[in-house]
């Protein structure tokens, strides 16, 4: 595990977040301390241990491939900040 300080601004770009430049040192410090805490996991040899993603080791639940929902589009569109012609409206992507 690499505990060198991660580049907060690069991670923020991946996470689609903007961090105020004045706040970068504070986030950087918190991140470093959290990663140092997390590094305690390195003390354990887990080479023979299988990862556990679900506490009951259950796989994905499957259901019959059949229509089970009615059309809720009007209710969902009503929640959107902007819509037009039954579509979600976003700023222009292509000039």
């Amino acid at each position: 595990m690499d505990n060198s300080s991660p580049d907060i601004e690069a991670i923020a770009r991946l996470a689609r977040l903007a961090i105020d430049p004045n706040d970068v040192p504070q986030y950087q410090d918190a991140m470093q301390r959290i990663l140092a805490l997390v590094a305690q996991m390195n003390a354990v040899d887990t080479a023979q241990i299988a990862p556990m993603g679900n506490p009951h080791d259950l796989g994905a639940a499957l259901r019959a491939d059949a229509v089970s929902e009615r059309d809720n589009s009007a209710a969902f569109l009503a929640l959107a900040p902007a819509t037009e012609n039954n579509l979600f409206l976003v700023p222009k992507v292509i000039e």
Binding site: M41, T46, I49, A50, P51, M52
Partner: peptide
Amino acid sequence: QAQRIRRL
């Protein structure tokens, strides 16, 4: 690693 620790 966290998921393996989780199993332990």
